[in-house]
Design a protein around this nucleic acid. Structure first.
Lengths: 205, 205
DNA sequence: CCTACCGATCGGTAGG
DNA sequence: CCTACCGATCGGTAGG
């Protein structure tokens, strides 16, 4: 709890943020009004503005909070496994778990990052790039030969595509759960990665 | 060209639609004004309304047009190859090519479909589901055993994830082109698909 | 923490 | 009476 502020101030901020994330995920940042955020939070609009300076502050908080959580996951997962295969499986499982818990925030990050101004977008995307780099290091450890063809990052992005896309088609109450799909993604990616052929390099004169 | 309408009427409609798709892709449907669409099209707003009834008609036209093109691709690709492997490679290549040509429309389809009303969204998503079903049939032909575990559609959606995500990280002028990445996706997916293990089925009493 | 408002801009339409 | 457009402005609502 913050100094000089009433007990529950931070809790209220978190509740507002979760409601805003749900609304932004559903109707987009531009398509959501502060009246809607206030109503969903059980507050008047004036009170809402007591907790957040403006609508934009909600967007920054949602997106930045989410990428920082992702960054934490990468550090932990890499530390607790020794082989690249093991690291990749843990990375995939943790990332899927995080998305399962933060679907709204994830959707806001992927779809509304365009509404951040240049400085904030750069800061958020730089953290996201570090997350990707963490995965890419393991990809390159698994197939060092592909890095010569600059395929380390593209292959990592194909993996992120599979995972980032999950929330568009998986239903939270479906027969297939997030803990079922993570090993399927791992199997597919690890076996597929072994088979990828490096395209012949263009000689640069 | 339509009956009773001046030559160029349909061309003007197409130009407006392309400009609207570019703006919606950049700032979202809700974040784009009809003034912006009019300006980008070189028309007054009143003239813009001569070509499209309202802003919503633009969204319907963009999304529906795009899924209908995707649907056409699936039919052609499956017809011109005999083996499932060959069909899958052609499907992937054609889908990537289509996305390369219609990046704006693709982005609008994936991010702004939420602004369609129930009836229009159902119609668009039903066509999209047919596209997915076309891919899924080839996936199941490659691994019929996985259909028992209901993994045909999930694996197809992992493939769509890789492809649908391309436009978020590939740069049109980058060293890696869309024609370079399609075979990489095919290699990864086809080899990965062979290795996926079916999870043991839960016995339903 | 609320009611009452503001400057501006929204999607859409008037007359000619 | 049609189409193809224009400058100006409508009623409502957004963020603040």
């Amino acid at each position: 709890m913050g100094r000089g502020r009433h007990a529950g101030y931070d809790d209220q901020r978190e509740l507002i943020l979760a409601q805003a994330a749900a609304l932004f995920a559903k109707t987009g940042y531009a398509g959501t009004s502060m009246n809607q955020v206030a109503e969903a939070s059980g507050l008047s609009k004036a009170t809402l503005y007591h907790y957040y300076r403006d609508k934009y502050a909600l967007l920054v908080s949602i997106t930045e909070g989410h990428v920082l959580r992702l960054q934490g996951i990468v550090g932990e997962a890499v530390a607790e496994e020794r082989t690249p295969q093991g690291q990749m499986r843990v990375l995939i499982r943790r990332l899927v778990e995080e998305y399962a818990d933060s679907q709204n925030e994830h959707r806001v990050l992927t779809e509304d990052v365009k509404f951040l101004d240049d400085a904030d977008r750069k800061r958020v995307l730089d953290i996201e790039r570090e997350v990707v780099a963490g995965f890419a290091r393991v990809v390159i450890a698994l197939r060092p030969d592909l890095e010569e063809a600059a395929l380390g990052k593209p292959l990592t992005m194909l993996l992120f595509g599979m995972i980032n896309w999950l929330f568009t088609w998986m239903k939270p109450d479906g027969a297939l759960g997030y803990d079922d799909i993570a090993p399927v993604v791992s199997d597919l990616f690890l076996a597929g990665l072994k088979a990828v052929k490096a395209p012949h390099l263009q000689a640069t004169p």
